[in-house]
Nucleic acid binder design. Sequence first.
DNA 1: GAGTCATTCGTTG
DNA 2: CAACGAATGACTC
Length: 109
Amino acid sequence: MPRSNVTDFQKAVYDSISRVPRGRVTTYALLAQSIGCRSPRAVGQALRRNPFAPKVPCHRVIASALTPGGFNGAKAGTEIARKLRLLAAEGVVFRDGRLADPSRIVRPC
DNA sequence: GAGTCATTCGTTG
DNA sequence: CAACGAATGACTC
């Protein structure tokens, strides 16, 4: 029962995230557009289920507003704090709940 | 700059 | 088949 039934769409999302080099982050919108989707929601849905967790670095994906957005269905918590710390360890620093360097956002293309 | 409304795609129930 | 979900964009105040 597994909801592990990975679909092509999820594979595309995973591939796009994997294309992002370490120390860089991506946004839902960029990912969605990169895979040919106009709704970042679908991407968020796929990541939220995280069929590839923790293989999928969802923490590397943030909202376009430079905000971490949410993770695991929650916009805050110990889990998200851990992800932010991981990003900081990679060079992505969050300041005041927002990305300190928007230039860290790269296009999966 | 901040808040609200409408939009849009795929997954799950 | 219907509803939901980690969002985005545009408009208004």
